[in-house]
Design a protein around this nucleic acid. Structure first.
Lengths: 215, 215, 215, 215
DNA sequence: GATGAATGAGGATTCATTCAT
DNA sequence: TATGAATGAATCCTCATTCAT
C-alpha cells in the first residue's frame, strides 16, 4: 500500500528519521499506476488482468502485489490520485460559484473542464464504468462515484437554493449520469464531431438544469 | 461445427423448406437464451460464462455450441429477439407519430414504454452495457445499439423536419445515451424513488428535445 | 464429482436409460485418484499440488477440475474408496467378535490386517496425517478419522461391556493414535526391523487394552 | 549471505572471543524465533511462510535471512533452544534414575513434565510434526527427534539393564511415538477431558514398559 | 546490520471452446 | 443431436529467496 504521507523530495529533508528510502517504491507505484491506466483504457477495468498490468509496467507479478493487494486497490488508488489531480488542476471549479453567474456559463465552464480533464486522462472513463451490473458496485467505483456526486452537489447548490437535500442528490445523480453518457459519446468521436457532442452535452445539461433554476 | 445458417425466424421465410427437426432445436434455443438472460442479469455480460449458461439451461456445454458459435452470438441473438419482442409489444410507438402530438406526450409515452419493457426484461440493460471500452464495441453491442438508434431516429424525425441526417443521428445518439444513463438510475432504485428518477429522465429528454423542436 | 451410483458394467445393463457413458469419466476418476495417491505418498498431502496430480495422471489441470472441485475433494473421495476397499477386503474384522476371543488374538488379527492394508495402500498413511495443526482438521481428515474411530469402537465394545460411551470413545482415540504412531514406525523400516515394530505395536495395544478388559 | 558460523550458544564457548555486536543480533534472533514459534503454532510448520514470520517479528524479510539461511534453519534453531530450555527446566529428569524408583512413578513424572513443557511451549508439537511423509525427515525434524530419542533411551536404560542397544532404541522410538500421539490428543482437548487423556497416556506407557521391566 | 524492493516459478482455479462417442 | 470429457492458456495470488541501497 502506497504511503501517502511520504512524498519524496522536500518532506524527506524535514522528516529526517521516520520512513526511509521509499524513493524506489514510490517510483514503482507511479509506474504501476501508469501501466494500470494504460491497460484499463485498452481493455476496460473488468477485463484488465493484474499480470497484464505488471507486464505493461515491466515488472514481475510479485512486485505488483508488493504494493497493491489486488486489482481493485489499484483502481482505488488510481481514482483517488485522479481526483487529487483534478482538484489541483481545476480546484476553483469547486468553489461555490457566485449565484449571479449565469447557469449557462457555469455549466459550460464545468463541462469544458471535466471534458478536458477526461480527454487528458482517459482512464477516468474506464474507472467510472462499473462492472456491468446495476446494483453491485465495487468499492473502487463507489468511492469515485461518490466523490463525483459530492462535487456536483456542491456546484449545484447555489443554483437551487431551496431544494431539499434528497432532491439535490437526485439531480446530481442525473447530471453525473448525463455527463458519463455524454463523455462516452465525446470520446468515441474526434475533431469537429467531438466538438458537436460536447455542445450537445452542454445543451442537455443547461436545459435540464435551467428549468430547475427558473422554477 | 455449429451451423450458422440455421438462424430461426427471418431466414426461414426466405428458405422455402421449413425443416421440421427444428422444433426441438427451437425449444433448445429458447431455453438457452432464457438461461443466458438469467446469467447475464446475475453476473453481467463480461463475467458470464458459457458453461454457466449451459448449466443454467440444464444442457451440456457441447449442446450450447451446437446452436451458437460463441458467447457473443448468444448475446446477439438475445438482443435481436428482445428487439423483436419490443417491436411486437410496443410496435405502434414506431409508427411515425402525428407531428401534431405534443412532444411531452410523445416522450412520456416512449419513455414509459421503454422503461416498462426494460423492467420486464432486465437483460436488456446488461446487453446495452458494452464491455467498458468506448471506441471498441462488440458486434453484439453494435447491433443492439444500431437498432435502438434507428428507432429513436424514426421517432424523432417528425419533430425535427428540416434537420440534416447527421444531426438527427447525433441527437438520437444523445437521447439513447441519456436513456441508458437514466435507466441505470431507475433500475438502481425502487418504489417512489424509482418513479422520481423516471420523471427526471422524462424531464431531461423533454427539455433537451423541446429546444430543438421549437427552434 | 464422481457419480457413485453408477458403477459401469452390470448396472448399465439394468438401468437402460438414466445416465450414459460415464465409462471414460469413471476411468479418468480412477486414474486421477491413483495419481493423487502417488503424489500424496511422495510429497505428503499438504505439499501435494493439484497440478502435480494432473500431471502425474497425464491430463490437463482442467480435466482434474471436471471431476473434483479441489484438492480436498480428491482426498475425501480417495479416503472413502480406501475405506470401502478395506471393508471389502477385511470386512469380517468389523463383525462384533465373539467375546470369548482372547484379546491378544483379536488385536493381533486386527493389527495384522490394518498393517497389511496400509502397506498395500500407503496413501492411507498420508491421508491420516492431518495438516500439522492439532485442533484444525480438514473435512477430509475428519471423515477418515471418524470412520476409523467408529470402527475401532465397534471392535472394542465386546471387550469392555460396561464401559460408558465417552470412555469407549476415548480409548478408541488412544488406540487409533497408537496405531498411527506405530504405523509410522513400521513404514519407516523394512524386513525384520519392520516385523519387530509390528510386534511392538501389538504389545502396546494388548497391554493397554488388557488392563481395561481384565479390570 | 548469512553467516552460519554465528550460531549462538555452544560454539561461542569454543570461540575464544565473545564478539560484542551480537547483543543486538541475539535479541533479533530471539525475536525472530518467538515470532516463528507463534506462526508455526498458528499455521503449522509447512504452511508457515518466512515472510509471515518476519512480519510477526516486525522486521523485514531481508533481516530474517541475515540470521537464518532458510525456513528449516529457523525450525532447527528453535528446536534446539527448546531442548535446551527443557533440559534446564527439567534437567533432573535426565539423570539416570535410581533403578529402585518404581516404573509408574518414573513414567508419571516424565509424562507430567513433558506434557507440562509442551503445554507451555506449544511450538514443540508443531516442530515434532514432520512434513507428513514417513521415510523422508527434514534435518530439523531429525535433530529434534534424535535428541528426544536419546533422552528417552537414557531414561529407559536403568529399567531394562540387559536389553541390547538396538532393542532399547526400538523401545524408545515406540515410546516417543506413543508420546507424540498422546500429546496430540491431549492438546486437542481441555479441562477434565485433557486430564483424562494424560492419564491414558501414562497408562499406555506404564503397561507397555511394565512388561519389559518385569521381564 | 537493516530495509524494502524484486523476482519468477508455482499454487489453485476458471473458461471458452473442441472432440469422441 | 446431445453429451460430457478434454484442453491449455489465462486468471489471481503467494512465497522462499536475493539484491541494491
Amino acid at each position: 500500500m502506497p504511503d501517502k504521507t511520504e512524498k519524496p523530495g522536500k518532506q524527506q529533508a524535514a522528516d529526517e528519521r521516520p520512513v526511509r528510502r521509499q524513493a524506489r517504491g514510490e517510483r514503482r507505484i507511479a509506474q504501476l499506476l501508469e501501466a494500470a491506466a494504460s491497460v484499463f483504457c485498452t481493455t476496460g477495468y473488468t477485463a484488465a488482468s493484474t499480470n497484464a498490468i505488471a507486464r505493461e509496467a515491466g515488472v514481475s507479478p510479485g512486485t505488483l502485489y508488493q504494493f497493491f493487494p489486488n486489482k481493485e486497490a489499484i483502481a482505488i488508488e488510481l481514482g483517488s490520485r485522479l481526483m487529487h489531480r483534478m482538484r489541483e488542476t481545476y480546484g476553483e471549479a469547486l468553489a461555490p460559484l457566485d449565484p449571479a453567474t449565469p447557469l449557462e456559463e457555469a455549466v459550460t465552464a464545468a463541462v469544458d473542464r471535466f471534458i478536458d480533464f477526461n480527454c487528458r486522462n482517459p482512464v477516468f472513463f474506464a474507472l467510472m464504468h462499473g462492472p456491468d451490473i446495476p446494483g453491485r458496485m465495487t468499492e473502487e467505483h463507489d468511492a469515485l462515484h461518490a466523490t463525483l456526486i459530492t462535487r456536483v452537489e456542491t456546484l449545484l447548490t447555489p443554483f437551487v437554493p431551496g431544494m431539499p437535500t434528497a432532491e439535490v442528490n437526485r439531480v446530481a445523480q442525473v447530471c453525473v449520469g448525463i455527463y458519463k453518457a455524454g463523455l462516452e459519446l465525446v470520446l468515441a468521436h474526434e475533431g469537429a464531431e467531438r466538438e458537436a457532442y460536447v455542445q450537445e452535452l452542454k445543451n442537455v445539461l443547461v436545459r435540464y438544469l435551467g428549468a430547475l433554476v427558473v422554477d
